[in-house]
Write a protein that binds this DNA or RNA. Sequence first.
DNA 1: CGCGACGTTGATTTGCCTCAACGATTGTGG
DNA 2: CCACAATCGTTGAGGCAAATCAACGTCGCG
Lengths: 191, 191
Amino acid sequence: MEELINKIKGSITLSAEAEEHISSISKVKAISKGELLIGHGQMVKNTYFVIDGCLRSYGIDKNDKEHTLQFAIKGWWISDFIAVYTNEPATLNVEAIKDSYIIAFNTKDLDEIHSLFPEFEVFQRKNLERHVVSLHKRIMNQLKLTAHERYNVFLKQYPEIEQFTPNYHIASYLGITQESLSRIRAEQLNK
Amino acid sequence: MEELINKIKGSITLSAEAEEHISSISKVKAISKGELLIGHGQMVKNTYFVIDGCLRSYGIDKNDKEHTLQFAIKGWWISDFIAVYTNEPATLNVEAIKDSYIIAFNTKDLDEIHSLFPEFEVFQRKNLERHVVSLHKRIMNQLKLTAHERYNVFLKQYPEIEQFTPNYHIASYLGITQESLSRIRAEQLNK
DNA sequence: CGCGACGTTGATTTGCCTCAACGATTGTGG
DNA sequence: CCACAATCGTTGAGGCAAATCAACGTCGCG
């Protein structure tokens, strides 16, 4: 909870009223590994802030293969943002990949915060800017780099995630198969 | 120019003062095919709004191959957003791929607009939200679909762009080579 | 213990890349 | 106005990175 307030204060200066308001509607919730917070086809009400633990969002292709769009650890936001920002049913799933603590914000509450506290509008814009930066970088990496190089970038960028995430989730984020990632790791060791 | 004002009004209601202010700093500029607006390594001052024509942003890998990150046609914004939002030197290039009309906004002017007109903050947030949606969709397509399927999605999504864009630019956007795209197109015709 | 989840390894296939050559079209200078 | 070069798309032959399919070892847990 302080986690969230500190995060916001890292980007903007937060008025006492805004802090009070946000605290009042924030309820930390414990969820356990494997729990599905958003399922394909549902209308999406919530965006989640991760206090601790790890979630991921992923889609499923026509051969039933999963593809991870995003991981979210402590201090990150996650949802099916496609669904949230377009008001369409979810095309993604969001699940906890370990026991976690989160705060759920429904879209109405967030809209209210935006209209009550213009400062929050700035916070949100900066978040979105950072988000765009990371997505642009990811797309460029996907276009420019080999699977092996992408894996190394991933390790450098998210060393924590590698620790407790099964390999096939990382593979599905990198756009390769579990087997290929295993071979990449083997190759890495023989050096 | 009206192009821009109408675009803004499509998202938010714009006060007369804000409209006046924005108009006063907007200068439409003609640029010709091949012109480079942003070059790798430079500090990036501007974000461009396209009145007419087409630009693209792209990066170059260690084998000197180009990879297109974004196309921008009438009504779109383009820049090296990684550089703009992080204040780092450009990692991308931005060039006109046909004769175009644009408005250049430097970052200071945009910041000023944001602080003077809170309504613009909302506009910017909605733009960023749409941007995030399109990036998420693109990443999911890259993970889920074959090159052939991605090409069809591209055609459906940007029919105008296909008309005047050389094939190798489209290929570099899709993450395949010019030759592969040519074969995909040939296959498409034999059906 | 025995089962399921996870990672690894091997054999084979495949989608796309690379390299190379070749028309078609467009543009340019003599 | 033609000759020539440059640009762009196509096609073929061969190669490679990663996918697929399958089997197996290990670990942790009900």
